[in-house]
């Protein structure tokens, strides 16, 4: 049995297309709004840079120790371990041993949070507005019929806002079309705006999962002194092995 609903074809042109167009335009607008709101990442001061790089130095030594001879390794290890333990590389040696400050009072951390807030706002505000607009004007319309059959599970996805139990799953409601657009326009934005656009909300969410990145290895609230100490311990337990051991045999065995 095929369900038929007699509906005005104008519904199609006056709901389906407006929603799609509005969604695309908001995406483009959001992209440029985010660019405008972006603050340039704050530059690290020399001591902070030094702190990070020296820690990285230790990590490099720990992971790639096999490239250098055991004497060279021991010399570097002794130097780094004692420097780490003394806290020679700390950004502010006076704060040593004190508990890490509240991230809310740290201006650098505040700035990061402000940036995140801005990103969130650029996403939330248009979303709320459009959602309200759709609810006010287009709620409860069935706007099109998909040309292929679907299982019952898709009902909640395709027919939100139309609470009828017997309606065939192939009918799509206006609110659902909005949601489909919201999540499915990524490739369109890539086509229009290029690869690294800020239009899609999926990409934004991905970014928020991993807010560090350019910000450096130190998350706010982490005590660099403790990180140095644990790195020193890691270095101390390294069992040295030299990559050049037996390399002649390996080379001769190569062919």
């Amino acid at each position: 049995m095929v369900q038929t609903i007699h509906r005005d074809p104008a519904l199609f042109y006056w709901i389906l297309f407006p929603i799609s167009i509005v969604m695309i335009l908001t995406g483009v607008l959001r992209h440029y709004a985010t660019i405008l709101l972006q603050t340039t990442p704050k530059k690290l001061t020399l001591p902070a840079l030094r702190e990070q790089r020296q820690l990285l130095h230790g990590i490099n030594l720990r992971t790639n120790y096999s490239a250098i001879s055991s004497a060279s390794f021991a010399a570097r290890k002794n130097y780094l371990v004692s420097a780490y333990k003394n806290g020679d590389f700390l950004k502010d040696p006076d704060n040593r041993g004190k508990p890490a400050g509240n991230p809310m009072t740290d201006p650098a951390a505040m700035e990061g949070m402000m940036g995140m807030m801005k990103g969130n706002m650029a996403m939330m505000i248009p979303q709320t507005l459009i959602m309200g607009w759709i609810n006010a004007f287009f709620a409860g319309f069935v706007i099109m019929k998909l040309p292929f059959p679907l299982t019952l599970r898709f009902k909640s996805m395709l027919q939100s806002g139309v609470a009828t139990r017997d309606l065939d799953v192939r009918w799509v409601s206006s609110l659902s079309w909005y949601f489909l657009n919201l999540f499915g326009l990524q490739s369109v934005f890539i086509f229009i705006l290029g690869n690294d656009n800020a239009a899609s909300q999926m990409a934004q969410q991905m970014q928020q999962m991993n807010p560090s990145g350019a910000g450096g290895m130190f998350q706010p609230g982490q005590d660099p002194d403790k990180m140095f100490k644990s790195e020193a311990e890691n270095l101390e337990v390294v069992e040295h092995e030299y990559i050049l051991k037996g390399v002649e045999e390996r080379v001769l065995g190569l062919v």
């Binding site: 001879s69 004497a71 040295h240 030299y242 001769l252």
Partner: peptide
């Protein structure tokens, strides 16, 4: 046993040279 590598044997060196 202080971690330093032993001298390679002459035979190995010769082989490496030929290679």
């Amino acid at each position: 046993d202080n971690g330093e590598l032993p001298m390679p044997s002459t035979a190995t060196v010769r082989k490496l040279n030929e290679k």
